[in-house]
Computed example of a mutant assay.
Amino acid sequence: MNSAPLLPDRDDECTTAEVARRLGLAVRSVQLMVDRGELQAWKTPGGHRRVSRRSVEDWLARRMAGTPALAPSTPADAAGPSALPAAARAAAAGRAPRVLLIEDSRHYQNLIRLLMEQQFPHAEFHAADDGYAGLALAGRLEPDVLLVDILLPGMDGAMLIASLRKLPFFTHSHVVVVTSLDEEERRPFQHALQGVPVIHKARLMVELPPLLEPLLQASGAALAS
């Protein structure tokens, strides 16, 4: 006898809008997470998308349990100021300016790390692979400069910048967006990009150094004062 196909438990299903509210994201970001396989989903007979509530909680648990990857530019940094509480770091006299890159591409992580080592060896450099890890790491490191991609896993760059603006340290930080999106493709994110310098990745090596230099100088002067 043929058995009927198993259907998802109704208690385990939620809409993309509900997931977006749960994660603090745009509905489009949730749809992209489903497309990437980060969340389990199916469609109802009427064509409406439903997401497994269990997969959402599992995703959140993995994010909470994950340790953001640090990428110090010098070996001494690995056990240095970033391991101290924020208040102790702020009290440390003359610490180096701190740069945090939030970028999921290892190619661009390596490229920017190399640029930092060659042209700004006095600065600390750290990297995070996605929006949630970047937000957590920013809260812990209180970086002086943040380099943020727009298309990030989990939390896109626009949502990330909006979240960063709510953190106390942000008033003393500088944000630079580094993206492969052209002006037309960036239009849906303009609400978060007002007043933020944007560098297209094709011109990264030309435009980033002259933009970073005064920001790091200003941060270094503030830290030394």
Rank of each mutant, 00 (worst) to 15 (best):
T171I: 02
D104R: 06
Y108W: 14
P168I: 02
I102R: 04
L160D: 05
L114H: 14
I150E: 02
A136Y: 00
A93L: 13
M116F: 10
A86G: 07
L151I: 09
F125P: 11
A138G: 14
G134D: 05
E117Q: 15
R106C: 02
A128N: 10
R95D: 04
A96V: 10
R89A: 07
A91Q: 14
Y108S: 06
E117S: 10
A87P: 00
F120L: 03
E124H: 14
L101G: 09
G94Q: 12
A96D: 15
A136G: 06
G157W: 09
G154W: 01
M155I: 14
M159G: 07
Y132K: 00
R95G: 15
A127T: 09
A86I: 11
E124A: 15
H107C: 08
L146C: 12
L141A: 13
M155E: 01
D156K: 01
E103P: 09
L101C: 11
P143T: 10
A133N: 03
P168H: 02
L141E: 12
S163R: 14
P121W: 08
G157S: 06
R98H: 10
A128P: 08
L167M: 13
P143N: 07
L147Q: 11
A128I: 11
K166R: 15
I150F: 04
Q119G: 00
K166F: 00
V99F: 02
S163K: 11
R140H: 13
L141Y: 10
K166Y: 00
A162S: 07
Q109S: 04
M159C: 05
A93F: 11
A91I: 08
A88M: 13
T171Q: 05
L147V: 10
A136H: 04
F120R: 07
S173E: 02
L146M: 14
Y132H: 03
M155L: 12
A128L: 06
G139A: 08
F169L: 01
G154N: 01
A138N: 05
H126P: 03
F169D: 02
E117M: 14
L100E: 04
A136R: 15
E117F: 00
